[in-house]
């Protein structure tokens, strides 16, 4: 058996909150969030979202990501169906101060990458101890 065999992670539907006007399911994307000395990086799986349909909003400490999947036309009759197309929506509360002007977002192979650089004040400061 391989070290890690990939299994399907069933998509989780958004339960409450702002209901969509579009009759289309909305899912919670799986994310990785990691912090380095200078930035907070967020990766979100959003297959089917084109680059121009991604919406990122930072309102005080509330970060909202939204991805819209264009309507997918299934051709012919369905034989087998393991997933449903839908939009993505997720909200986070950020703890550290972010330098808003320098946020970078990119999307590659359906994975959103958001780099949120920390504001100068939030960066750890090294204090040099001088020996006398």
């Amino acid at each position: 058996m391989a070290e890690t065999d990939l299994q399907i992670e069933e998509k989780k539907a958004v339960q409450a909150g702002g209901e969509s006007t579009r009759d289309f399911p909305v899912f919670i994307p799986a994310v990785d969030i990691y912090e380095s000395e200078n930035a907070l990086t967020l990766l979100a799986d959003m297959p089917g979202v084109p680059i121009d349909k991604i919406d990122i909003d930072l309102d005080s400490d509330q970060l909202t990501i939204r991805g819209t999947v264009p309507q997918q036309e299934l051709k012919g009759k369905v034989i087998f169906k393991e997933f449903t197309y839908g939009d993505y929506y997720r909200q986070f509360t950020l703890s550290s101060d972010i330098d808003r002007g320098k946020i970078e977002a990119s999307i590659k192979e359906g994975v959103l990458k958001l780099v949120l650089p920390k504001a100068e004040a939030a960066k750890p400061k090294k204090i040099t101890v001088q020996s006398t």
Partner: peptide, 27 residues
């Protein structure tokens, strides 16, 4: 969906001339 649990999730459809397979493979 009646899922097999094996990645990637698929949608298979067919018409008279063709079979269509779609899969979600982010990243």
């Amino acid at each position: 969906a009646a899922s097999s649990g094996v990645f990637p999730p698929l949608i298979v459809t067919e018409d008279e001339d063709k079979i269509y397979v779609e899969a979600e493979i982010p990243g």
